[in-house]
Write a protein that binds this DNA or RNA. Structure first.
Length: 586
RNA sequence: GUCUCAGUAGCUCAGCUGGAUAGAGCAGCCCCCUCCUAAGGGGCAGGUCGCAGGUUCGAAUCCUGCCUGGGACACCA
């Protein structure tokens, strides 16, 4: 409808321009907006205000000229000039209520595909280190990323969801070594566990399963294990050198094959746990991408070669550097250290190159806010590789700070005293969890009070929305009890009877769904949809309280039930995009 | 110090590419079930949109400066 009005204005302007009212080279962008106040009609345009200056005319006078030149449209009742020169458009009742019929006909498809594109977009999100279960901090990235991907898809953008598995690097070695030490412990050795090791309970479970599979094949005497290992921090040493020495010792005593047993047991177990966890959270990926595969395939070398060929690398003090300052980064970055090992950043460059080589037109990274400093260097790498930096998009998600009542909950994967995403889901429920995470803008701090979320009271907006859905279903059940049958055709034919303020407001709200969906998608802002659903539920509850649906007048009854059904459909469409269920009964 | 995000009602936050009288939810006060789920609805009260300039017909929104708060600034992964 907005577009229709814009077209009408455009035609009017053409006429005026042809008649020499203003110069032909004046090319105003036509804006049609939703009105905030119903007395201003359904849509408004500021075109006369914007044109007043170039046309050197009084805005109200200009507005009248535009209105006179507007082509006739059967969708409009009238147009008015208001205030300083706004043109207000009043849409006919038939045109407004037509949306109800469209929703009933298109069902889950309604409102989709308005930003249809052939540009493939990859959304990479969560990508937590596979060193332990996901905690609540990851939950927000998961909920946000999944909703953004689903929204994009709904808007018509081809999307692929990917999880980058950080299975290379020191953290994984610390994990494998921690596992081996727990394994020794379970076989009777008295191990002083390293202060820098992974202490979570899940390590014990994995250790037990290694014993089931391999019994004591990898048991080594403790004095051999600890021989000449530098002291840990509590004993006055350094925790980093202590754990590094233990890693080396593990690799040496177990040899490559034995070490791989622990490495893979830890990785596979934790990864499959993360996979299940996300799946239960309604989050599915098309691809799980291994960081190790980048080195194995030579992608890292190839990426560095590309940078070398493009002249962006230099050597200093034995290290190989990427001159990212040439692209606006605040300092240059090491990609290969003097010891020959490539840095984590080198893998990231290779990964980026890999993504583009797989044919994605846009790659969207969803990171925790602590990765903020990473954006400049990735943009730099993108340009240095020869790709348009506009194709690399980053959205930062602020951490959710957990509270139990007044008390802030501390989180740390290493110490093992964290609240996992799974625990949170168990306490709060998946629906509330998914919804709560996306009701705030992603880059906004969020306080997540467990006590409050657990109360499942009216404080939680998700119940309010789901309740609206359940209410419609309840009406259908009651309808059957009264031996009435909903006749959609009669309902659609009698939509004109829906003329109370509440009904008109509800229909208007329904008509906004497509643009809300599209806007939320292209701006990566699912909270807009969450807010919309709350408003829609509000419109429905008001209408429900004011107007009874199960009435003897069959025509009005069918019309009202048709409207309820359209509302239910939109609630369901929207909730589905946010990963929330639509209960039929509560 | 540099970068970045923010500062809107007592609290938590919306406010789309600048538009007409700045909106919700909690919390507070009042009213509504012989009636489809009161897990609901209606009403009252509550604001110098951090401060000061600037651009504009028009600013919570854009620009500049300042104040306050969060976060990020490793030859770590």
């Amino acid at each position: 409808m907005k577009q229709h009005i814009a077209d009408l204005i455009s035609a009017a302007l053409k006429t005026l321009s042809d008649n020499g009212i203003f110069a032909a080279d004046v090319q105003p962008s036509i804006m049609v907006e939703n009105t905030r106040d119903k007395s201003h009609g359904d849509f408004a345009s500021n075109i006369a205000l914007a044109l007043a200056k170039p046309a050197r005319r009084n805005p109200r006078e200009l507005a009248q000229l535009i209105i006179d030149a507007l082509p006739v449209s059967e969708n409009l009742d009238k147009t008015e000039i208001a205030g300083p020169g706004f043109i207000n458009f009043f849409v006919t009742q038939e045109t407004t209520t037509a949306v109800v019929g469209q929703i009933i006909a298109q069902k889950a498809e309604f409102g989709r595909g308005l930003a249809s594109s052939t540009e493939r977009t990859q959304v990479e999100f969560v990508s937590a280190n596979p060193t332990g279960p996901l905690h609540v901090g990851h939950g927000r990235g998961a909920a946000y990323g999944a909703s953004v991907a689903d929204l994009l898809e709904a808007a018509g953008v081809p999307v692929e969801r990917e999880y980058y598995v950080n299975d290379a690097g020191r953290q994984m070695n610390i994990l494998a070594t921690s596992l081996w030490l727990r394994y020794l412990e379970k076989l009777g050795e008295t191990v002083t566990f390293p202060s820098n090791g992974y202490k979570g309970a899940y390590i014990h479970d994995i250790a037990s399963s290694v014993i089931v599979e391999h019994s004591d094949t990898y048991k080594r005497p403790l004095d051999e294990v600890m021989y000449n290992i530098p002291a840990d921090e509590p004993q006055g040493g350094n925790k980093e050198t202590h754990i590094d020495a233990l890693i080396e010792r593990a690799q040496e005593l177990l040899t490559a094959d034995g070490y791989a047993v622990f490495f893979n047991a830890a990785l596979n177990s934790i990864l499959s746990d993360i996979r299940d966890d996300l799946s239960d959270f309604g989050v599915e990926y098309q691809k799980w991408f291994s960081e190790l595969s980048l080195t194995a395939n030579g992608d890292v070398e190839s990426a560095l070669n590309t940078l070398q060929e493009n002249g962006h690398l230099f050597e200093e003090e034995g290290n190989l550097w990427f001159r990212s300052t040439a692209f606006g980064d605040d300092k240059d970055r090491v990609v290969r250290r003097a010891n020959g090992l490539t840095t984590y950043f080198a893998s990231d460059i290779a990964y980026l190159k890999n993504k583009f080589e797989r044919g994605f037109d846009k790659v969207l990274y969803i990171w925790g806010a602590d990765h903020h400093g990473y954006i400049a260097r990735m943009k730099a790498a993108c340009q240095a590789l020869g790709y348009d930096p506009e194709r690399l998009l980053v959205r930062l998600v602020q951490f959710a700070i957990l509270y139990r009542g007044e008390e802030r909950v501390q989180m740390s994967t290493r110490s093992g005293s964290f609240v996992t995403l799974r625990e949170l889901r168990d306490e709060v429920g998946k629906d509330a969890c998914r919804f709560f995470y996306v009701t705030r803008k992603a880059d906004q701090h969020m306080d997540f009070d467990l006590e409050l979320a657990k109360t499942q009271s009216k404080d939680n907006p998700i119940y309010y929305i789901q309740y609206a859905h359940a209410r419609v279903c309840s009406v259908h059940r009651k309808l059957a009890e009264n031996d009435w049958v909903w006749d959609p055709e009669s309902g659609l034919a009698n939509l004109g009877k829906l003329d109370t303020e509440h009904e008109k407001d509800l229909i208007t709200r329904l008509s906004k769904y497509p643009e809300v969906l599209t806007h939320a998608a292209v701006n990566y802002e699912p909270h807009l949809l969450a807010n919309y659903l709350r408003e829609l539920a509000n419109n429905f509850h008001s209408h429900y309280n004011a107007n009874k649906m199960l009435i003897d007048d069959a025509e009005l009854r069918n019309a009202r039930i048709t409207l309820s059904e359209a509302t239910r459909q939109i609630l369901n469409n929207g909730l589905t995009l946010l990963g929330v269920s639509s209960p039929e009964q509560m």
